[in-house]
């Protein structure tokens, strides 16, 4: 019982069986389960139309789920006290053009029940952090897309949230801006905040996320830490001189494959690598390099969608190991 309570309190987001069908026709979510631990950065991936935005919108009450169980910050979905400590940056957000940057922060923070003195003291710091101090008193209609994005992130942080939900946070930002956002996310994580990221930029997610979920056709295709997801897809690549075709059969017996003139051995099987090296030496091959290769998140993503470009042997090996 104690364990269960601990598990519940350690989860910032614990959603079970999220379902949503639009206009009784389009099944956006077909029973999604998502668990996000407190203090971690969680990334949600998926192709267009996978249901990512719908899931985020359900979490933030923008869209109503047909069915959902579970909690956000330990309370049922939509609990106002918990929404007051949740920051949200929607994709393609739009601020009223007549408001200045400072007024935007003040207005949305007031709606989030942040007391006026706190708003007054917090806003300048956030604007400064985002490099918008000079623009604080200019109407947002004069802002560039990148500036609006940075202002949007500031807005999401005005209530000093426990949970921060960011939908495409680096959209419209230049490389420097993206780097700033990444370092800010890591700072927030250090401060104990939970961050839920929805992004199509896999490389960026890979740099900051502790855990990810891959959503496809309304279902979670994969979910776990990056280490968990990449573990079974680690492969060794052995580069040699000489013709490998003569010993192809022997290589394949040892679960290896020949790809682009290299031997590829899936998994973390060091013993298997050594056996292959012995085989190669016995047959007079000069070994030029042995490289452990970890697949990128993009590779995992593509594989999860059933469109993997990786060698079949990798999947087979992964399956064998599993």
């Amino acid at each position: 019982m104690t364990l269960q309570v601990t598990e519940i309190t350690n989860l910032a987001i614990d959603l079970i069986g999220v379902r949503k069908t639009y206009r009784k026709k389009v099944q956006a979510l077909r029973g999604v389960n998502v668990q996000v631990g407190r203090g971690e950065i969680f990334g949600l991936l998926g192709p267009n139309g996978a249901g990512k935005s719908t899931l985020v919108k359900i979490m933030m009450r923008v869209v109503r789920a047909d069915a959902v169980m579970g909690t956000v910050l330990g309370r049922p979905l939509g609990n106002k006290n918990k929404l007051a400590v949740t920051g949200y940056l929607p994709e393609s957000h739009r601020f009223p053009g007549y408001l200045t940057g400072m007024q935007v922060l003040d207005f949305y923070a007031a709606l989030a029940r942040v007391p006026r003195p706190v708003r007054r003291s917090r806003a300048p710091g956030l604007l400064d952090r985002m490099g918008l101090t000079r623009w604080a008193d200019r109407p947002t209609r004069e802002y560039s897309k990148g500036m609006l994005q940075r202002l949007g992130i500031s807005q999401a942080l005005m209530n000093d949230p426990e949970l921060i939900v960011l939908d495409e946070p680096t959209d419209g930002l230049d490389p420097m801006g993206r780097r700033d956002v990444r370092s800010m996310l890591l700072e927030l994580k250090k401060a104990g905040k939970t961050i839920f990221l929805n992004s199509h930029l896999l490389s960026e997610l890979e740099m900051v996320c502790d855990r990810v979920a891959i959503l496809n056709e309304g279902l979670v295709a994969r979910q776990g830490t990056l280490a968990e997801l990449t573990q079974r897809t680690v492969e060794y690549r052995i580069r040699t001189s000489g013709d490998l075709q003569a010993i192809r059969g022997e290589i394949e017996k040892r679960s290896g494959t020949i790809r682009n003139g290299q031997i590829v051995l899936g998994g973390r099987d060091a013993q298997g690598v050594n056996e292959l090296i012995d085989l190669l030496r016995q047959n007079g091959h000069l070994i030029e390099a042995v490289e452990p290769h970890r697949l990128s998140l993009e590779d995992i993503f593509v594989e999860a969608l059933g469109q993997s470009t990786a060698a079949p042997a990798v999947s087979q090996t992964g399956g064998r190991k599993a």
């Binding site: 933030m60 009450r61 923008v62 929607p90 994709e91 957000h93 709606l111 029940r113």
Partner: peptide, 10 residues
């Protein structure tokens, strides 16, 4: 884009 932020407030 505008309504999303508004309705997500407590």
């Amino acid at each position: 884009g505008a309504v999303d932020i508004l309705v997500s407030k407590p």
